[in-house]
């Protein structure tokens, strides 16, 4: 589904990604972990197409297509979804209007008929109940004045409505209490299935107790320095990212 080959990216002359290689197959859940500043969020935004980052080398294939040649909205229409670490507030645009516009924009790009209001509202109600969201949040402006937890739930709601093929969750666990974490994780697990893939970007192991990954990758200084199964996450929790530095230093030394 997703194949990243030797990906290099920079922002304002600062190299952030320095040769990422990653393959995610359909049906899989991958976790990307790493210390602050390792490039986790950059990778997530490069996938979504944020224009602040410049890809200087490498390629990304998404279902066989060259992802880097697609603009932001084409990627979204092709089923790529990024749940933001810091969702953006949009004063004056109601959450309901935004969601319907997004669903219809995707349908339009696929030449599908637009969703009618009744079906839309029914689907919205179901998903909101599932995420324990209050009805009033629909009439409020997108993320405006939402608490940290409400914003994260709102991201998962958008994901549930848009039903992406590849979901990238950027630090979705940050700022969530344990109850909210469970609800959000349930929302993500509902989406899990044989025709989808999920990439969970996180600093802490905690979320992976709820969203159990098939593979775990550790990112440091813009490269994936280790990959393994979920026990790698537990090991990191146990030993901290410090253990990794000595390990990767040894690995680089060995490479020389």
């Amino acid at each position: 589904m997703l194949e990243i080959k030797n990906l290099h990216a920079k922002s304002e002359d600062k190299d952030i990604l320095r040769g990422i290689n990653l393959q995610v197959n359909v049906g899989e859940v991958h976790a990307i972990m790493g210390p602050n500043g390792s490039g986790k969020s950059t990778l997530a935004h490069v996938l979504a197409g944020r224009e602040d980052y410049e890809v200087t080398q490498g390629e990304i294939l998404y279902n066989g297509q060259n992802l880097l040649e697609m603009n932001i909205e084409q990627r979204a229409a092709a089923g790529l979804f990024l749940a933001y670490q810091y969702p953006i507030e949009i004063p004056g645009v109601s959450n309901k209007y935004f969601l319907k516009a997004a669903m219809n924009a995707v349908r339009k790009q696929h030449g599908q008929p637009l969703i009618d209001t009744t079906s839309f509202l029914k689907l919205l109600k179901e998903n909101m109940q599932l995420l324990g969201m209050d009805k009033s949040m629909m009439e409020r402006s997108v993320n405006e004045g939402f608490s940290g937890g409400e914003k994260k739930r709102n991201e998962i709601l958008q994901m549930a409505m848009l039903q992406p093929k590849l979901a990238v969750l950027d630090e979705t666990d940050s700022g969530l209490d344990i109850d909210a974490l469970r609800i959000v994780a349930d929302g993500v697990n509902t989406l899990r299935g044989p025709d989808r893939a999920i990439i969970v970007v996180t600093h802490y192991q905690r979320l992976l107790d709820y969203i159990v990954p098939d593979q775990v990758h550790v990112l440091a200084e813009g490269r994936i320095v280790r990959s393994g199964d979920r026990t790698l996450a537990l090991e990191l929790e146990d030993k901290g990212y410090g253990f990794l530095e000595t390990h990767s230093a040894a690995a680089s030394a060995a490479a020389v």
């Binding site: 979504a48 197409g49 944020r50 224009e51 603009n71 932001i72 909205e73 990627r75 979204a76 229409a77 990024l82 933001y84 969702p87 953006i88 949009i90 935004f98 516009a101 997004a102 669903m103 924009a105 995707v106 790009q109 958008q158 848009l162």
Partner: peptide
């Protein structure tokens, strides 16, 4: 960017 990343 946020709106575009939702397909708009």
């Amino acid at each position: 960017y946020y709106l575009r990343s939702r397909g708009i």
